[in-house]
Design a protein around this nucleic acid. Sequence first.
DNA 1: CTGAAAGCGCTTACAG
DNA 2: CTGAAAGCGCTTACAG
Lengths: 342, 342
Amino acid sequence: MEAILSDRPSKEKMTIVRVAKAADVSVATASKALNNTGRMKQETRDRVKRIARELNFRPNALARSLVSRRSFAVGLLTNDTYGRFTLPVMAGISAGLIDQGVSVFLCSMDDNRELAQIHVDAMLERQVDGIIATGRRIDTPLPVDLSHLPIPVVYALTKGSDDAVTLLPDEKQGAREAVSHLVAIGRRRIAHITGPASFQVVSDRAGAYAQVLQEAGLDVPQQGLLQGQWSELWGHEAVDRLWSAPGAKPDGLFCGNDQIARGAIDALRERGVDVPADVSVVGFDNWEIVAAQTRPPLTTIDMNLKELGRQAGLQLMRQVNGEAFEPGLIRLPCELVVRQSS
Amino acid sequence: MEAILSDRPSKEKMTIVRVAKAADVSVATASKALNNTGRMKQETRDRVKRIARELNFRPNALARSLVSRRSFAVGLLTNDTYGRFTLPVMAGISAGLIDQGVSVFLCSMDDNRELAQIHVDAMLERQVDGIIATGRRIDTPLPVDLSHLPIPVVYALTKGSDDAVTLLPDEKQGAREAVSHLVAIGRRRIAHITGPASFQVVSDRAGAYAQVLQEAGLDVPQQGLLQGQWSELWGHEAVDRLWSAPGAKPDGLFCGNDQIARGAIDALRERGVDVPADVSVVGFDNWEIVAAQTRPPLTTIDMNLKELGRQAGLQLMRQVNGEAFEPGLIRLPCELVVRQSS
DNA sequence: CTGAAAGCGCTTACAG
DNA sequence: CTGAAAGCGCTTACAG
């Protein structure tokens, strides 16, 4: 239209049209050059790319998605706004997907049904390629039904529908690692202090605990399986209970989480029982902030949540890309982290 | 390719064209009807809306954004993948923005410069309307410079550039609340056990602590300001130090975070000092999982992080909408939560 | 009160 | 090897 003012900064929107003009090719050619598609002289391709770079061209993802029918974006639904489990999972998802050029919409919805629906609708309108649902608890579903969406859905750390893939830590394997470790270092009277029976993970871990003992030819000590709260207080109380009972005391404790372990170790110290000399203690979660501050620092199980998030992202993209997949649970291995409490 | 099977459900993409056809109006009219713009018979508008609803029409946000030049999406950059502070802030941002129809891209980038740049580029290509940066520490910047972006940037809980708005909890006011509370309940020898001097918040809170004491005509006790770690261990050790010194012991403790308070209370209990009868203890953070499990439950300061996130979202949208704003720090009030430790 | 047309910024057959 | 044209799904002047 007008003569181009020489000092005008590149404030005008930089589009592929301008790149094409500057490179003296058609828009079609410019597009193909930049996307490494089509066929053309290598020289042309290089020139277009160079000029695009010089002009600071940034393709408009909106336009690109509109025509390619792929948004390269996914929705991440969560009802956990406080927990320590969700953040590493989310970070893993984000990290795993950005490598593929996929961005993640954060949808935080507490347990609000209505809000959840609003988020789902927003995601659909934004044409996300898929959805990852993550939550606070494995045995509690999100406040919205995702099973009839026109896009793939993957669940991480929360209960999903049966025809979908759900990623979870391998609780049993993790518990086995913990108890096997106690056995391996020579402990023979190993008690298990854990959370409320209503949690799925509690019975999973307790089952693995009993099984490892049996395989090692050991017994679950009298009153050796204590279910209570996920709290330090409960860990403390459980030790009081164990140590005030008659008979031989435990020489090993497998605790359902790091807080319980922390409380148990506190109680042992108050009783003058030495950890790890008299009793070895193993926790669960590897919640750094607790585990590393326990005196002595806590041996515990890491659930590799960031890796779990990454895998969830990859799973989803596989489905988005139409690859075959098998619905059901995928259990990812946990890892023993040895510190000084064992 | 193949003949279309007759029983195919309404899998065809539902677009505004189909809605318009069904309602027997032009696409332009359909658009205006659905967006409550333009002028037309109320009856027409209602009919279009009804039919759109019946047809389960979902406008394609990509197309809409492409023409309206507003994506109604923002980027959320964070380098905190584990902390307990960031998740509530993020939840607040998401909650505050979804009300305005704005979605949030999660960009998790650890402290990786390169990754950060990739995320920023992705956000720009996706035409986000603005960016919120949040981080682990108030006195540490993100690994990427956001000060010359063509879109507004707001900082929450992390150090931002001077020409931008940064939202932070009012640390001093929070500390004042804590110490004033101790004074109000009759405590006279109040010590302050806090974190490393290298943290900005440590000096902010310590300053407020000293000031409140002075205003109340009280002195900072000999050796009454103890700087150490953000840990239970340090809280424990600090109490040991205070109680093994000669002279009158403190009757009040203001702790720099809930973990320190937790450790201090543990130490007091081990010494047979009763909380709150002999000593009142106040923490900072209201980290439920620690504060509610301390014995006795901890009086502490809540930083209202979710509200802070919400405000950050609103601030950003105000800037996106071109409203005037004043660069600089916005301090949001903290809140005293009284439990049984005081 | 309603509609035809142009256009947002890109990609993709198709033709030359 | 390159380009003209159509189109993704919507909105917005503009005309009638």
